[in-house]
């Protein structure tokens, strides 16, 4: 445990929010889908609304704490009712809440619109790995925690996690999807509950044995995105990450064809749909 981190932390916490905070990840990611940006927007909206309310409520409290203390020699007033005030501070919160519920509902409707996907992947949780099946392409594979992370995460492994690239966030087989395509993910489980969480896509859904939940996303930026299992599933719950690689369409096609060849899948026999 390095001491400098402690002092760093102490200073950071006391210092006013400055540019130094930039490399401390503080906030929700905007992500790379329309939905994830909507969610981020909603998050910021409620956050600022709460800040404004806090400013008002805490301001009022602090004012009272400063002004109406006995040490300033004040006499206590004895009022104890005001129907008018009560109505005001019941109604105003109701209005604020309605104002927040409307955009939230709109986003929900958008999230639930899962029509016309371009590609469907079934993700199955196992203790403790994920299995992915491309329903139309016939390809399937397991996705385990990468060896490097798995070695370092052993009790007293002697390996410094900081020396491992993408510690706990890397897997042996990435999920690949084409950019700007509506990808539907069917999520289920083979044993206990798991949850498929991909922060950059604004998606989290439980994997339930015997039931299938569905989500979709349309990633707009090629790149590698990382998430984790988000429902307690036993001892290695913290060690079954999710990695999705968003590829340009032609690159996706090439990689997919290679996988199909590797798994010996006869593409002519696949259903047209």
């Amino acid at each position: 445990m390095n001491m400098h981190r402690f002092w760093l932390a102490a200073v950071m916490l006391l210092a006013p929010a400055g540019s130094a905070l930039a490399d401390w990840e503080l906030n929700m990611r905007e992500g790379v889908t329309e939905i994830s940006r909507d969610i981020h927007g909603l998050h910021m909206l409620i956050f600022w609304v709460c800040c404004v309310i806090a400013l008002f409520v805490f301001g009022w409290m602090i004012l009272a704490l400063v002004l109406h203390r006995k040490s300033r020699g004040v006499e206590a007033a004895q009022f104890s009712h005001s129907t008018k005030a009560e109505i005001v501070w019941t109604l105003i919160p109701v209005l604020i809440l309605i104002a927040m519920a409307v955009p939230a509902t709109q986003t929900m409707l958008k999230i639930e619109d899962d029509r016309n996907p371009d590609i469907t992947i079934k993700a199955t949780g196992y203790q403790w790995k994920w299995e992915y099946e491309y329903l139309d392409e016939g390809v399937s594979f397991y996705s385990n925690l990468a060896r490097t992370s798995n070695d370092a995460r052993r009790l007293n492994s002697g390996i410094d996690p900081a020396s491992v690239e993408n510690y706990l966030l890397e897997v042996d087989n990435h999920v690949i999807v084409p950019v700007n395509k509506k990808v539907r993910v069917l999520i289920t489980s083979n044993d206990v509950l798991h949850a498929w969480w991909m922060p950059d896509f604004g998606i989290k859904k439980d994997a339930i044995p015997g039931y299938i939940n569905q989500v979709w996303f349309r990633a707009e930026e090629p790149g590698i995105y990382r998430g984790q299992c988000a429902e307690l599933c036993g001892q290695d719950h913290g060690f079954m990450p999710i990695v999705v690689e968003v590829l340009a369409q032609d690159e996706f096609n090439a990689r997919m064809a290679a996988m199909q060849a590797e798994q010996g899948i006869d593409t002519t026999k696949l259903a047209a749909n």
Binding site: L186, Y211, Q214
Partner: peptide
């Protein structure tokens, strides 16, 4: 009904049961 494929569980019925 979910197991049959009702409501938002279309694929539960189709693929699992």
């Amino acid at each position: 009904p979910f197991l049959e494929g009702g409501s938002n569980n279309f694929f539960t019925g189709l693929l699992l049961w």
